[in-house]
């Protein structure tokens, strides 16, 4: 499965002329049991793909919402081993929903690129997004993941233009993640027109599905992004809903967002 699980998930929505909904949450926030309940509930609420955040002490691309989520997870004692155990439980419960681990380089580097790839593959993970591993630094991890048929998802930013865009898209797998704002997660709201143009531009360079995230907070924005993108990613809004109203509120929001993303 693995990479093909991602391909199948996007293709399924694409056939129905719909955008896939990608839900992000932080492992261990505010504790393992709560995050397990949310994680296992996401596919039922309409998430086509799940990104599971690996908490890191110094998340430099996150806005306050995800920073605090990581801090809560670490204060609750969440370890990399716990994140991978959650992934395994998810895989047992949901054989077909792709699961992507998202986080920062140091905890992965500390495990070792190969050990991480092997353990993630064993747990049933399909890919990884490492925010501070640009193409220039990602080869060792990309190779290790590739050996286990896992995708290293690349981020494309609004500043990734010209020659660099085609460079960054070389050798990618799974899907492409377009960062819709120049900034950190969950703060600024993306400009719909700009996103459409960027997505069209990226499409010229790759056949992979394109998911768009960073700053999508509500169903209206999700629906707007879904017009051009193959996938809509929401993170901070779900994390906030969990913090404010618990698992039920987070799943309720997920359902609304998924519905919006599925309405192209």
């Amino acid at each position: 499965m693995s990479i093909s699980r991602i391909t199948v998930a996007f293709a399924k929505r694409n056939r129905q002329n719909q955008s896939a909904f990608v839900a992000y949450m932080m492992a261990g926030d505010p504790d393992l049991d709560t995050s397990r309940a949310l994680l296992l509930g996401l596919p039922g609420a309409g998430a086509d793909i799940v990104e599971l955040g690996m908490p890191f002490s110094d998340p430099i691309a996150e806005g306050p919402t995800i920073q605090f989520a990581a801090q809560r997870a670490l204060e609750a004692g969440t370890k990399m081993a716990d994140v991978l155990a959650l992934a395994r439980e998810f895989r047992n419960a949901h054989p077909d929903t792709p699961l992507i681990l998202m986080g920062y380089a140091n905890p992965v580097h500390h495990m070792g690129w190969e050990v991480f790839a092997q353990t993630a593959a064993d747990a049933g993970v399909d890919g990884a997004i490492i925010v501070d591993l640009p193409p220039e630094e990602s080869q060792p991890l990309a190779n290790a993941l590739h050996d286990h048929d896992l995708a290293l998802i690349r981020l494309i930013a609004p500043t990734t233009v010209g020659e660099r865009l085609s460079q960054v898209l070389q050798g990618v797998s799974g899907f492409v993640y377009y960062v819709s704002v120049t900034g950190v997660t969950g703060v600024a709201v993306p400009d719909g027109g700009q996103v459409t143009m960027a997505v069209q531009n990226i499409r010229k360079c790759t056949d992979l599905p394109i998911a768009v995230g960073f700053g999508v907070r509500d169903p209206a924005t999700a629906q707007q992004i879904a017009q051009s993108a193959d996938g809509v990613v929401v993170g901070s809004a779900i994390v906030s809903a969990l913090a404010e109203g618990g698992v039920e509120a987070a799943l309720e929001l997920t359902a609304k967002l998924a519905k919006a993303a599925h309405q192209r």
Partner: peptide, 20 residues
């Protein structure tokens, strides 16, 4: 050329910053 002193250094930044 990759900004490395032996195995140290490099450019571990989000893609948004890479072009800059």
């Amino acid at each position: 050329r990759e900004g490395r002193f032996g195995t140290f250094g490099g450019r571990y930044v989000p893609e948004t910053l890479m072009p800059l």
